[in-house]
């Protein structure tokens, strides 16, 4: 009996030690859940194999950035003369860009943005999605971005970092992306959930961005505004991501099924806010089949064959038919 208790205590202690070890050196685990804290990054700034990507604009980068961070404004999305959408650049171009940032296949990549609003976080999320698309999952977003870093008075510099060229080679995971043709086939089909990451008034069709051709949303889609995923701007807070519990609650409240294998397509106006949806659903909540609609509303609204509904919440579209 006593032995048993001792054994149990030993197990508990061992587990506790293991958990603590995991927390103290969370290099693997932190990258695995896609988010690192300011504290973690400030302790690991000089780690070998760590690459910090600053996705803000050049003027902001040159004014001040995290020591060692690489200027990585992009382009993460490109458009052509027809302005079809802000698409993922060709793989070769991305590989070259990432090698230029010093990325190799074993690099741990930490991405940060301005960290003021959810749309800032979306920029980091789009870079992270791009890395996932290229088969690189050792990456994470700095929670709260540069805003949180500055508020916590961590070291900053104006000295641009000059990276050594990396050796990154992509292994494209093509089902991270969905094209317009596939979207047309999937829309209205059972067991495929379209999730709109834009603002409710855009979803509803009360207003729209001038470059979007039609009001409303892809028929039948759910709405989970990326703007609600962080607390950026509330009581002057940096754009910290809401807790996993709250995000899970939110996903359920938006009608997303709890099955982690559910087939989900995320979209927004240009595929930028959609990336934050991808990040939350895939990295934070563990949905395995989340695809980003690259062309998003910009591309879809120009195609007359795509059913777009105005003046309704998407979840009512089929019920009222």
């Amino acid at each position: 009996m006593r032995l048993k208790i001792r054994l149990t205590i030993a197990t508990v202690v061992m587990t506790a030690v293991l958990i603590c070890a995991g927390l103290v050196a969370p290099r693997q685990s932190s990258a695995a859940n896609g988010l690192v804290t300011i504290e973690w990054l400030s302790k690991h700034l000089n780690d070998k194999g760590l690459i910090i990507l600053d996705v803000r604009t050049f003027p902001k980068y040159i004014k001040s950035h995290i020591p060692g961070a690489i200027r990585a404004f992009g382009p993460w999305q490109v458009t052509n003369a027809d302005f079809i959408g802000f698409m993922t650049p060709p793989v070769e171009q991305l590989e070259n860009m990432l090698r230029g940032f010093g990325v190799s296949n074993d690099s741990l990549i930490i991405i940060y943005d301005q960290g003021m609003t959810s749309s800032d976080t979306s920029k980091s999320a789009r870079a992270l999605w791009t890395l996932h698309y290229l088969g690189h999952t050792k990456c994470a977003i700095l929670n709260g971005g540069f805003n949180a870093w500055e508020q916590r008075e961590k070291p900053i510099t104006t000295q641009p970092a000059v990276p050594m060229t990396g050796t990154f080679k992509a292994k494209v995971v093509s089902n991270k992306l969905i094209t317009l043709d596939e979207v047309k086939k999937k829309l209205g089909k059972k067991n495929c959930w379209f999730v709109d990451l834009r603002q409710p008034h855009e979803h509803f069709g009360h207003e729209k961005k001038s470059y979007i051709s039609r009001f409303g949303h892809l028929r039948g889609s759910l709405l989970m505004p990326s703007a609600y995923m962080t607390i950026g701007g509330q009581d002057f807070s940096p754009a910290y991501l809401r807790s996993k519990d709250k995000l899970r609650h939110m996903a359920a409240g938006c009608g997303i099924p709890s099955d982690p294998n559910a087939e989900i397509v995320v979209y927004s106006n240009t595929g930028l806010d959609a990336a934050l949806g991808y990040f939350v659903l895939n990295e934070i909540l563990g949905y395995k089949n989340v695809r980003l609609f690259d062309g998003s509303m910009l591309e879809a609204s120009k195609d007359k064959d795509v059913p777009i509904t105005r003046y309704s919440w998407g979840w009512n579209d089929y019920r009222n038919k």
Binding site: H249, W315, Y318, R319
Partner: peptide, 9 residues
Amino acid sequence: FSWSINPPK
């Protein structure tokens, strides 16, 4: 954090 979708879509 919910749109009160009821019954579910």
